[in-house]
Simulated scan of single mutants.
Amino acid sequence: MHQKENRVKKLLPEIIFENDAYVAVNKPAGLLSIPDREQTEPSLKDRLLAKYGSIYTVHRLDKDTSGIILFAKTEVAHKYFSRLFEERRIEKYYLGLVHGSPAEKKGTMDAPISEHPVQKGLMVVHRKGKPSVTDYEVLEDHKTFSLVQFQLHTGRTHQIRVHCKNMGHPLACDELYGDGKPILLSSIKKKFKLSRHDEEERPMLNRLALHSWRLKFTDADGKETDLQAELPKDIRALLQQLKKNL
């Protein structure tokens, strides 16, 4: 395989499923879902356009969120999936690592969200905001951090991130709604020693700890569909260390 073909292949994230109507992609963290206004950096949509020729945006994930995202391949499919999302007939599940240990291990975060009155690009819980509902369940409690599954019932900007902050357990490495600090192995492992080859410790996780892991819906042919993307390697490695050092 030529070098150029190799590079193009590297640019294409893992395709979880595709047919003539749509493609489901496992988006890596740090990649825009769709081009921003300035178009200064590549997006997942750009890469799919290069592969398929035409592609339609159905929904989006934050740049720093990894996981499943759907794109339609035809106008008919675009209309169908847009309606599913609008009518909340797609079940959306996320996995996230939050700071601390929520007292209630299962519940619903029902708090309206609106744009921040002063800071552009930030969202905030506000009584005059739009209704926003997130179910959550703690799957693993490691005291300093907990792995939580979220199910979105509405689709507000930064919804999970804002609700976690409001609950008092912000997502790990969240620069907007948490402390934004990377997670170091030395903060988890009691007898940590820096390798003599390393001048400074490299973070185990240095990006938003949120992953879109599951989408459930009925496709246009009436087929029940359940798409899943396992947690990325960086979050899996961190969870392993948290289990070891409880």
Rank of each mutant, 00 (worst) to 15 (best):
V124R: 00
H99G: 08
K128C: 00
G121V: 06
A103N: 10
V118L: 06
T108M: 12
A103G: 07
E115T: 00
Y136A: 14
G100H: 07
G121C: 10
V118Q: 04
L139G: 09
E140P: 11
T144W: 05
Q119F: 04
S132A: 15
V124S: 00
P131E: 15
D141Y: 05
G100A: 08
K120W: 02
P131Q: 14
H116P: 06
V133Y: 12
M109N: 08
P131R: 15
P131M: 12
E115R: 06
F150D: 02
T134D: 11
K120T: 07
E140D: 08
A103W: 06
L139H: 13
S101I: 00
D141G: 07
V133N: 13
D110A: 14
M109L: 15
S114C: 12
M109H: 09
E104R: 08
Y136L: 14
G107Q: 05
F145L: 07
A111G: 08
K106I: 13
V125F: 03
R127S: 12
P131S: 13
G107Y: 06
I113Q: 07
D110V: 15
K128E: 02
L122S: 02
V124L: 02
F145M: 12
R127V: 10
T108D: 09
D110P: 13
H116W: 05
S146A: 14
L139V: 09
R127D: 10
Q149T: 09
H126F: 05
E140V: 03
S146C: 10
P102H: 10
Q119P: 00
K120V: 07
G107T: 09
V118P: 00
K143F: 15
V125I: 12
P112F: 14
E137P: 07
T144F: 07
G121K: 10
P102A: 06
S101N: 13
S146E: 09
E137N: 10
V138N: 07
T144L: 08
D135V: 03
A103D: 14
I113P: 11
L147I: 01
M109Y: 13
P102Q: 09
V138W: 03
L139P: 15
V124F: 01
S114V: 00
H126Y: 01
A111C: 04
F150A: 00
S146Y: 03
V125Y: 03
V138I: 15
F145A: 10
T134W: 09
F150W: 11
K106P: 04
G100Y: 07
V148W: 02
F145V: 03
V138D: 10
K106R: 07
E115N: 02
Y136V: 05
L147H: 02
G100I: 03
S132K: 13
V125N: 01
A111K: 04
H142E: 06
